[in-house]
Amino acid sequence: MKFNFIAERLAQQTEHNRYRQRVTIEGVAGRTIRIDGNAYLNFSSNDYLGLSNHPEIQAALRDGASNYGVSASASSLVTGFNYAHQALEATIAEWLGRERVLLFNSGFAANQAVMHALGQQDVLLLLDKLSHASIIDGALASSATVKRFRHNDYLHLAKLCNNAPQQDKLIVSEGVFSMDGDEVNCHQLCEVATQANAMSYLDEAHSIGIKGDLGQGIATTEVDIVMATFGKALATNGAFVACSESLHEYLINFARHYIYSTAISPAIAWATKRSIELVQTEKWRREKLQSLTRLFKTSLNDDITLLPTTSSIHAINVQSETKALAVSEQLKQKGIWLTAIRPPTVPKGTSRLRVTICANHNDKDIKYLAKCLNEVLV
């Protein structure tokens, strides 16, 4: 048989309790999901603000499809860029106080595009150890030298910068880290960047919408480049890169993921514009997340340790893949959907339950989740 490694690798995944399978969600996913005819409270969603089924966003999607089309039908540099895209880019630029914005089909594509386009032979890419796979893959596929600094360790980062004083440098981190839920110290990161004459890049996929007074994320104006996705708190699809005028023009000319991809759906762009408007005006959603988070933390037994977080992500490290799967299954029997996160998504020995609290949950949901966790994590 050709490609024998396929069967071998799958067998290894099964042996190490890392085999992954898809499940089919029936109907509309939200606070609850239905799978195989059974309803579950959903604590594995990234719909942090509970906007995914918002009627005004749905109406904007319909209007966008009617006025601008479902498909862009071409790349942005051919005939795929229309008014819906332009309006969304302008909305984001004003929201974040940035010169220009460029739209991408996904956060994975956006991260890879920037790492690859800026990762020239004489460039040093400095990545936080817990950077997303898309950042790592994009950096390693580039021509740049790649080094990784210890997670949120800015002294280590400064040391790496000092060892390459004459090199162009890009420092890369995340606003909120997707698996631990902790966040960057933006001020310290930018201080190191300034001292090292480096550019800074922040992936705000898990902080856009839920951080900042208007949901604009963690990044200060000191950060040179911001990337964020639409598919989490903003409840649509796609991503953007916000940057300077000159970098915007550079990416249009040299970012292969942008040049050679059909532009995102105009209908989705129009719906995202409405979503961002709601994010800015409906501050109560962020306030509710904070209230539910406080309730969750105080409802857990003292012997259950959450990783430090100021976000909607609450990680409980159970260490082994076997235990993570077993606890996830026990919770399923109690009507809770909470996915076990295992290597290689997280480092070996740190398999976990990743609880995500969303604004469409209520106090009763949180108390029930905590009660069930208190029962199964013994």
Rank of each mutant, 00 (worst) to 15 (best):
F3N: 14
E8T: 09
R9L: 15
L10Q: 10
A11F: 05
T14E: 11
H16G: 01
N17A: 07
V23K: 09
T24H: 10
G27P: 05
G27T: 06
A29D: 13
T32P: 00
G37I: 13
S45W: 09
E56A: 11
I57T: 05
A59N: 12
R62Q: 15
Y68D: 10
G69C: 11
S71H: 13
S75D: 10
T79W: 13
N82V: 05
T91L: 02
W95L: 05
L96M: 13
L96R: 10
L96W: 06
L96S: 05
L96N: 03
G97R: 02
E99V: 04
E99K: 09
L103S: 02
L103E: 01
N105R: 06
Q120N: 08
Q121A: 13
L124P: 04
L124N: 07
L125M: 11
L127R: 02
A133K: 04
S134L: 03
D137L: 04
G138L: 03
S143N: 14
K147Y: 12
R148Q: 14
R150S: 11
R150H: 08
Y154K: 08
L155P: 00
L155D: 12
K159H: 07
C161Q: 11
N162H: 15
N163Q: 15
N163M: 15
Q166F: 14
D168T: 10
K169L: 07
K169Y: 15
G175M: 02
D182E: 09
E183V: 07
E183P: 00
C186L: 04
C190G: 04
V192L: 12
T194H: 06
Q195I: 09
A198N: 08
D203Q: 03
D203F: 02
D203H: 03
A205E: 00
H206V: 01
H206Q: 08
I208Q: 01
D213E: 15
Q216N: 07
G217P: 03
A219V: 07
T221S: 09
D224Q: 07
V226G: 03
M227G: 01
A228V: 07
N237Y: 10
N237R: 13
F240P: 02
V241R: 00
V241Y: 01
V241M: 02
C243N: 08
E245F: 04
L251A: 14
N253F: 00
F254E: 14
F254Y: 15
A255E: 02
Y258W: 14
S261R: 12
A269R: 05
T272E: 03
I276C: 13
T281R: 11
T281S: 10
E282P: 00
K283Q: 12
K283R: 12
W284C: 11
W284A: 15
R285T: 06
R285W: 02
L295S: 07
S299T: 10
L300M: 12
D302E: 15
D302Q: 14
L306N: 04
S312H: 13
I313S: 03
Q319V: 10
Q319P: 01
E321C: 13
A324V: 07
A326I: 02
E329T: 11
K334I: 06
W337A: 09
P344L: 06
V346L: 05
K348Y: 12
G349R: 08
I357T: 09
A359V: 07
N360C: 08
H361N: 14
D363M: 05
D363S: 12
K364Q: 08
D365M: 05
K367P: 00
C372F: 05
L373C: 11
L373Q: 10
N374M: 09
V376M: 06
